[in-house]
Design a protein around this nucleic acid. Sequence first.
DNA 1: CCCTGCCATCTGCTATTGCAGTTGTCCATG
DNA 2: CATGGACAACTGCAATAGCAGATGGCAGGG
Lengths: 231, 231
Amino acid sequence: MACDAAVPIEKLAEEETLSLGERAYRRLRSSILQGALAAGARISERGLASALGISAQPVREALRRLEKDGLVVTLPRRGTVVAEIGPERLAELGRIRAALEGVAAALAAERMSEDNLVTLAQLVRQMRAATAAADHEALAECNERFHALVQGATGNLFLIRSLEALDAYDALGRPRALGSTPKELPRVLREHAAILAALKARDATLAEARMRAHVLRSLVANRVPSPAPRR
Amino acid sequence: MACDAAVPIEKLAEEETLSLGERAYRRLRSSILQGALAAGARISERGLASALGISAQPVREALRRLEKDGLVVTLPRRGTVVAEIGPERLAELGRIRAALEGVAAALAAERMSEDNLVTLAQLVRQMRAATAAADHEALAECNERFHALVQGATGNLFLIRSLEALDAYDALGRPRALGSTPKELPRVLREHAAILAALKARDATLAEARMRAHVLRSLVANRVPSPAPRR
DNA sequence: CCCTGCCATCTGCTATTGCAGTTGTCCATG
DNA sequence: CATGGACAACTGCAATAGCAGATGGCAGGG
């Protein structure tokens, strides 16, 4: 079966063979998340289609998926607009995220592979170095990989998808203002280490509690100055 | 603006003016949930379209939405099949549900209206009567309304949608086997009363803990005999 | 008899076309 | 000048037609 082919087609095919609807979805999603499409902006199926150089069908499909994500709302026969999300809703979603990440940690504690635990330990070491060097960028990436690994270890698609959707909300509600905290770096490192310890010990309850508290603390640390308590 | 119309169009229009895609989605979803479309069954866009007497487009749209729900998986260029869900996944989803319902209870404790609390109290009274009469049917309905009210009181769309999706999974994984527990009726009543008390006291932490424990207990009570621990 | 290659058929996917409801504008009218 | 109604330009929605890729059976060569 074509053993002569020495070039690994599979790699580059990842981005090229995706359906147009899929590509439109990802592109639109990132546009919204990065703020290129501000909240409340009106979107037209046809207009967007011609802008992307494709038909209206895939665009419509992408919009439907974004609607399921809650990033967009469609008014029948009137138009589609980018969803808006207030600070109070964002706080609620943060609490939901904390709960879900907690469950993810609990599941991971029960069934995470030893290999994954080793990888997590490596990540924590990298975080320690990044913290010492005050490298916010590296720390943020390690943090992301840490959480992604824990979530992925659960193997639970529903959980992963829900957290991805929450990520989207999070990025949507916090427009461009995620400058990592200045002196909170040691706390982040310490908490991840503690979570890792609980995972290694296969203590689901402890892992859940620590993960949940960690996420909650990170949320209050990262939040914008204040919604200026109106009324 | 057409003030002469004395007939409330809005009511019956609910089912008639829905888009074909929306109707196809609901119909397919209920078919899957009720077991008419068994897990693993193959679905064809064209076939289903002709069966429903509509075009393939709305059907495709419905399938995409179901895919987002996790009720269906699509293999590119090969076909679409109804998702299968094993008992272990079901248990995981139960824990996720418990966590989410816990957060819902916490949010509800903080912002639930007094009217809603009164309604909940009425529901608990009805549950007491149903328990005394051993009316499983009525108890189940009260239970559903209780939880729906708590969830709705949060006003959080993401939370509500996630729990709806979990309901779907639940119904999918537990095919026709939800005969309420025989002698667990008093426990259900007691726990709901306790949750209501915490909500009345506006104690978010307590409400969350009680709701979560309640859901977890209901899950282990309702679960099938045993997945027969293999290995 | 078994394996290999081809081809009819089915699949999801995309483009094109047109329909029906909504909105905003412009002109005629009071 | 203000107001009401009709027309034009949108919008999302649906149907039709045809594309490329995947599958299963069938025939031909080993």
